[in-house]
Amino acid sequence: MKNHLHIVVNRVWKTAAMAVLLMNGTARAQVYGTGGHTVTMQVSVITSVRVTVGSVNLNISSANVVAGQNQMSVTDQSTSLLWGTNSSLRKVSVSTSLAAPKFTLKLLALNPTVGNAAPQVTLSTSAQDLLLNIGRSSGSCTLLYTGIALASQGTGNDVHVITFTVAAQ
């Protein structure tokens, strides 16, 4: 009887030990839940444009004039236009705020690092192409202004506010 009891106790212990071992193994492999993130990334349309200097002065005086010629002109290429865009098929257009200038003001994009310069434009309040094909790039060009006046027009002063706009081509 005592021997039988010993065998039973022994079996119970062994079973318990097995159960503990099994439980340990089960605990390590148990998946209680899952977690995750949805990451959405976006690059917006980014376009920037600026000029290196905010003001340009063009003065026609006797030094710019050839005797006998009615047309007088002066040029300036001291400033540059810089731009950056991550959109394709973009252009830079230009316009002036001055609706009725007394004299003629022309502009040409000189030596653009990216894109193609449009032919020299006579500035008006209507936007005109200055640069083409500048999509997905950053670049710069020299701004070549030409002021033209006729001697027969007399003296005077025109103040233009020039606006450069990057837009879809």
């Binding site: 376009t47 002065n57 063009l58 026609i60 006797s62 004299f103 025109d158 606006t163």
Partner: peptide, 20 residues
């Protein structure tokens, strides 16, 4: 952001000219 713009002021002055 899709249509950026910059401005620049240009003063065009025609002074008194006498040439011979």
């Amino acid at each position: 952001f899709s249509q950026a713009a910059a401005t620049q002021t240009v003063n065009l002055a025609v002074n008194s000219v006498q040439k011979i």
